[in-house]
């Protein structure tokens, strides 16, 4: 992989289970054991399992270092799944994803927050989960609190926070991780309007600086059109268009209008 490629997605396929009913996907302990023994012999593969369907099939694209790429598509097109695979949370069933640099994912904020613990205690754990070292957390602690604008509440348990405060703190920790590669799933901005402006301004500044590689999943087409250098339009289960923003947006709007006409 050449040095200026930050993320390379090559022929990635991901299959998920079909849930026809709540128990259809589940098996009893006995069947599971029997199937496991049988599958060992018949070389079971998820790629050929009829109880699974393709969420993504043979998806490929590159993200260059410093570039900002948006993933767009309708609900269920596999945008979040793709992002989670880049983050290393899911593994592809086929194909390969190569990531060159330290990744942090803003997928759902506040992973690992514990309601009974104070903001201070939660910042540490949450930041460790997002990949910072203890020393880095200590260095950035004041900035995180200041950015979140919750100074008086930092030593109160987070269950006493308003939901806005909770999200502000969670966002602040995430944005201060300052990774080489930032993955954002819809959480571009939280809190009231003023705070949302601040979030967007921070992200925009990061994107413009070209120091950080960013992948954004969003339904806000105006925003991704403005922020991104390239958009990847997913039409289940593959990539329909991968191009400069305006063309992809046009294509997507066309797609949406066709779908709603029916």
């Amino acid at each position: 992989m050449t040095d200026d490629i930050a993320i390379r997605v090559e022929g990635v396929t991901k299959r998920f289970k079909k849930y026809r009913s709540i128990t259809a996907g589940r098996t009893s302990l006995k069947t599971a054991a029997v199937e496991w023994l049988r599958n060992r012999r018949t070389a079971y593969h998820r790629l050929t399992d009829p109880n699974r369907f393709d969420v993504l099939r043979d998806v490929s694209f590159d993200v260059r270092r410093g570039e900002t790429v948006g993933l767009i598509g309708r609900n269920g097109a596999g945008k979040s799944t793709l992002l989670k695979m880049i983050a290393g949370i899911y593994r592809p069933d086929a194909g390969k994803i190569t990531v060159n640099g330290r990744v942090a994912a803003l997928i759902e904020l506040g992973a690992g927050f514990h309601p009974d613990f104070t903001g201070r205690e939660n910042i540490l754990i949450n930041a460790l989960i997002l990949g910072l070292s203890k020393r880095q957390v200590a260095e950035r602690f004041d900035r995180i609190v200041q950015y979140a604008e919750i100074d008086d509440f930092i030593d109160a348990p987070v269950r006493a926070y308003s939901s806005g405060m909770f999200m502000r703190l969670a966002f602040s920790v995430a944005i201060h991780v300052d990774p080489e590669i930032l993955l954002i799933d819809e959480v571009l901005a939280v809190g009231d309007e003023a705070f949302q402006q601040k979030c967007l301004a921070t992200i925009e500044e990061r994107v413009r600086s070209k120091r950080q590689t960013t992948v954004i999943v969003s339904h806000d087409l105006d925003l991704v059109g403005k922020l991104c250098d390239k958009l990847v339009l997913l039409q289940p289960p593959s990539v329909l268009v991968s191009s400069e923003p305006q063309r992809a947006i046009q294509e997507f709007r066309h797609l949406l209008s066709q779908a709603t006409r029916v």
Binding site: A87, G88, I89, V103, I107, E108, A111, I129
Partner: peptide
């Protein structure tokens, strides 16, 4: 579960 579905732990 949130620790492993939201973050790569």
């Amino acid at each position: 579960g949130a620790l492993i579905t939201r973050a790569c732990i």
